[in-house]
Design a protein around this nucleic acid. Structure first.
Ligand SMILES: NC(=O)c1ccc[n+]([C@@H]2O[C@H](COP(=O)([O-])OP(=O)(O)OC[C@H]3O[C@@H](n4cnc5c(N)ncnc54)[C@H](O)[C@@H]3O)[C@@H](O)[C@H]2O)c1
Ligand SMILES: NC(=O)c1ccc[n+]([C@@H]2O[C@H](COP(=O)([O-])OP(=O)(O)OC[C@H]3O[C@@H](n4cnc5c(N)ncnc54)[C@H](O)[C@@H]3O)[C@@H](O)[C@H]2O)c1
Lengths: 205, 205
DNA sequence: TTTATATTGTTATTTATTTAACAATTAATT
DNA sequence: AATTAATTGTTAAATAAATAACAATATAAA
């Protein structure tokens, strides 16, 4: 089953907001209610839900719990995937603190740095290893995903290291465009570009 | 002139990479060279450049300096736009340190927090004010853009505060979907969604 | 000078995504 | 029991974005 990227993004957001609804005791929800939560259209919601093959109940809406579980089945693996952070700088630290415990199926289990002063200890309960140890730790700790928060100039070598170590999913914050083999999924996030986009639109208004 | 959002994003990236090329002494560049830098196709580059009305020289390529300046004219205002950060937490701090001095036309000039222990001092040379002072400071410091790095539960009220203070461009990191009046441009970045996208694709491969 | 090659600018085509339309039908109401 | 209103699931249409195609032509090579 092929799902559009945009649908995946929205599924992630549906789930997060559905969990909030569930915790408030809501058992069923209509497409227009989900749409309101995310400020999109009900049609879009229904279409996304159709694409993942879920069926709501006519005039009762969608079963919140069941929908959450199904989205979980699509996004996550059963056992979950382990994540590592490359570069314990300002951003790396913020991400570790933020993500810790937030997503049980996406656990940050290790961090890697080249600065000897940072390695060999814990940061927010996460072990910080020397980047040399990457390949070994990826294997022993069963790490599937890497987050790149090293400086621009170190991003390419870090990405190659991750790929060589067997990582197949990368989230890159370094703003350095990376060219990776086809079997590795790469998601780039460029904060300067986001901010410049805001600048452009703010100017235009 | 209307420019697609995706084109704006790429223009931002073209400029960043062109500045590097320029600093290496390159005066002219071909569409396929720009494409290589970003790992996209030359056609895409040419089309984007066409859309902004720039003309290269046949068989000589684009004048690097002139292209940088033109992109600057599109993205930035002449005097630049001032930016504030809402919430001096882990992420807010990282962003301030990262952005300081990086983009002369997008200066972070102030930060706002509600925690009295954080306000009334400088962080990385940026003054930290009480959030109550927002409206006043937006006026006196001529702030046009706000970056939201407050907790999820505080995001909506913070956005409203920004809008009431006269801000017309917002970059939101809180993962809380915001519903703002049409005259305000909103860019949302949701890190969990990015990571879950990686998780999905990593699982699928 | 002539020819060949490389490169731009732009239109046409394809692909991806969103939005609209609406039939089917269930639950609530009369 | 019949009627009404609301909501889903899905196909069709519209919009947006990326890619392909190619004519025009400047430069380099013959
Ligand atoms: N700070 C932010 O808010 C922010 C925002 C957007 C993007 N970024 C990007 O994220 C990256 C990191 O930013 P930062 O502010 O945290 O920088 P930083 O300098 O604070 O941290 C970089 C860390 O990477 C480590 N490092 C260097 N080379 C390494 C290598 N080869 N392997 C492993 N670790 C290595 C350094 O020792 C340091 O701890 C940069 O590329 C930056 O462009 C940062
Ligand atoms: N840390 C990360 O890497 C990260 C990544 C992605 C998204 N986020 C999002 O960014 C936001 C901040 O994350 P964080 O880790 O920096 O959190 P944090 O708790 O470290 O910081 C939040 C800051 O906001 C301040 N604050 C609270 N209410 C406020 C208000 N009404 N006005 C102004 N300031 C206020 C707090 O005093 C605190 O300093 C959250 O919404 C989080 O979801 C964080």
């Amino acid at each position: 089953m092929h799902l559009p990227d945009k649908t995946i993004e929205r599924l992630s957001q549906y789930r997060r907001n559905l969990l909030i609804s569930l915790s408030k005791g809501k058992t069923h929800i209509f497409s227009h209610e989900i749409a309101e939560l995310l400020h999109i259209t009900p049609v879009q919601v229904r279409r996304d839900i159709m694409l993942i093959g879920y069926n709501g109940t006519l005039r009762k809406g969608y079963d919140v719990k069941a929908l959450i579980d199904l989205i979980g089945n699509i996004i996550d693996t059963e056992e979950g995937q382990n994540v590592c952070v490359m570069g314990l700088g300002n951003l790396g630290k913020a991400i570790i603190k933020y993500l810790c415990g937030k997503r049980p199926k996406l656990k940050i289990v290790a961090c890697f740095d080249t600065n000897k002063e940072k390695t060999g200890r814990l940061y927010a309960d996460i072990p910080v290893f020397d980047a040399e140890e990457l390949t070994e730790k990826v294997k022993t700790m069963n790490i599937a995903i890497g987050i790149i928060t090293v400086p621009f100039e170190r991003a390419s070598e870090t990405a190659n290291r991750l790929v060589n170590a067997g990582i197949t999913g990368i989230l890159n914050f370094s703003s350095k465009p990376l060219n990776l083999p086809g079997h590795v999924y790469l998601e780039e996030y460029d904060m300067i570009t986001s901010l410049e986009k805001v600048a452009y639109h703010t100017k235009e208004k």
